[in-house]
C-alpha cells in the first residue's frame, strides 16, 4: 500500500491536502492497523492527497496527561508541535478520538493550532462533496449499533457524522439505551487502557457490551481503536465473537465498497 510521508512529499516540493495522524494504536496495534489501512483505502478511492509523518510521529501525550503526568504530556506535545509547525501543517485527520481531542483542544495552548478532523467527519464531508460514494451493498438491512467514543461524543460534541455514515450503508441504526451525550464509556479512557481496573463487581466493557447485546445488533460499530479493543473483548467474553463483529466505521465503508 502506497503511503507517502510528509518528509518525502516536502522533498518533492509537494504539499498534501491533509495530514493523516495515524496514532500509536493505528500504527502498532494489530487490530487498529486494519482500521488504518481501511481508512487509507478510502482516502485513495476519494483521491485525497494525504501524507503521514511516519517515524516523525510520536504519541500525542493523551494517556500521559490523563494519567497525571503533565510533564511527559507537554514534552510530547511540544515535540510534535515542533514537527507539525516545521512542515507548516494546517489540516489534520485522525482515526483516533484521543489524538483528535488532544491535538484539536490541547495543542493550541502550547503553540500548535490546526484544523483537526476525526476520520468520520472527513468521510462524511467526502460523501457530501461526492468525492466518495457509498453503496449499501452487504450491509443493507443489517442492524448496526454505534458505540459513541467519549472523546468524540461528549468531549467534542460529534454525534452525527458517524451516524450519517452508517445510514449511508442502508443499514438499520439501532441505538443502545445509553447513546450520544449519555453514551457509556467502554472503560479505556483516562489511561485505563494501560492498567488493570480497580476492584468492582464488573468490568466496564462488559457492562457496555451487555447494553449493546440488548438491542440485538448484527454489528457493533466503533470509531475509536481503544473502544474497538474493549468492545471486542466484551463480545469475546460473551462468546459472541463468531456472530457479532466489532468494526470501525471506516472498515464498514471500505468493506461495502469492496476495497
Amino acid at each position: 500500500m502506497k503511503v507517502p510521508t510528509l518528509a518525502e512529499m516536502t522533498a518533492r516540493g509537494e504539499k498534501p491536502e491533509i495530514l493523516f495522524w495515524v496514532g500509536c494504536a493505528g500504527s502498532f496495534d494489530d487490530r487498529a492497523k486494519k482500521i488504518t489501512k481501511a481508512f487509507v483505502k478510502l482516502l485513495n478511492k476519494a483521491k485525497v492527497s494525504f501524507a503521514v509523518l511516519g517515524t516523525e510521529e510520536s504519541c500525542t501525550g493523551d494517556p500521559a496527561k490523563r494519567a497525571g503526568n503533565e510533564f511527559l504530556y507537554q514534552m510530547q506535545a511540544l515535540g510534535n508541535i515542533e514537527v507539525l509547525n516545521g512542515y507548516e501543517v494546517t489540516k489534520i485527520v485522525t482515526t483516533c478520538p484521543h489524538c483528535f481531542n488532544t491535538i484539536k483542544n490541547e495543542y493550541p495552548e502550547l503553540g500548535g493550532s490546526y484544523q483537526v478532523m476525526h476520520h468520520t467527519q472527513l468521510l462524511k464531508r467526502l460523501v457530501e462533496e461526492e468525492r466518495l460514494q457509498i453503496e449499501g451493498g452487504s450491509f443493507r438491512g443489517k442492524r448496526i449499533t454505534f458505540h459513541d467514543p467519549c472523546y468524540l461524543g461528549r468531549a467534542n460534541g460529534v454525534y452525527e457524522a458517524p451516524r450519517t455514515l452508517i445510514s449511508k450503508l442502508d443499514a438499520e441504526l439501532v441505538e443502545m439505551r445509553n447513546c450520544k451525550s449519555k453514551g457509556l464509556c467502554c472503560g479505556a479512557g483516562g489511561a485505563q487502557m494501560f492498567k488493570e481496573p480497580e476492584q468492582g463487581i464488573k468490568d466496564i466493557n462488559i457492562e457496555r457490551t451487555e447494553q449493546a447485546l440488548e438491542v440485538t445488533p448484527d454489528i457493533i460499530a466503533a470509531a475509536c481503536p481503544f473502544c474497538n479493543t474493549m468492545m471486542t473483548d466484551g463480545v469475546k467474553n460473551k462468546e459472541k465473537e463468531a456472530v457479532l463483529p466489532v468494526k470501525d466505521i471506516a472498515e464498514l465503508i471500505a468493506e461495502a465498497e469492496e476495497l
Binding site: 500500500m1 502506497k2 503511503v3 510521508t5 495515524v22 500509536c24 493505528g26 500504527s27 502498532f28 496495534d29 492497523k33 488504518t36 489501512k37 487509507v40 503521514v52 511516519g54 517515524t55 510521529e57 510520536s58 504519541c59 501525550g61 494517556p63 500521559a64 494519567a67 503526568n69 511527559l72 514534552m75 510530547q76 489511561a191 487502557m193 494501560f194 492498567k195 488493570e196
Partner: peptide, 28 residues
C-alpha cells in the same frame, strides 16, 4: 502498569514497547 506505559512513551514515543522506527510498517 501506568509507569510502564509512561516510560514507553518517554523512550519510544508510544504507550507500548514498540520501536518508533517501525511506525510505518503497517503500510507494507
Amino acid at each position: 502498569d501506568l509507569n510502564a506505559m509512561m516510560s514507553n512513551i518517554e523512550n519510544n514515543g508510544a504507550p507500548w514497547p514498540f520501536n518508533n522506527q517501525d511506525r510505518l510498517l503497517w503500510a507494507q
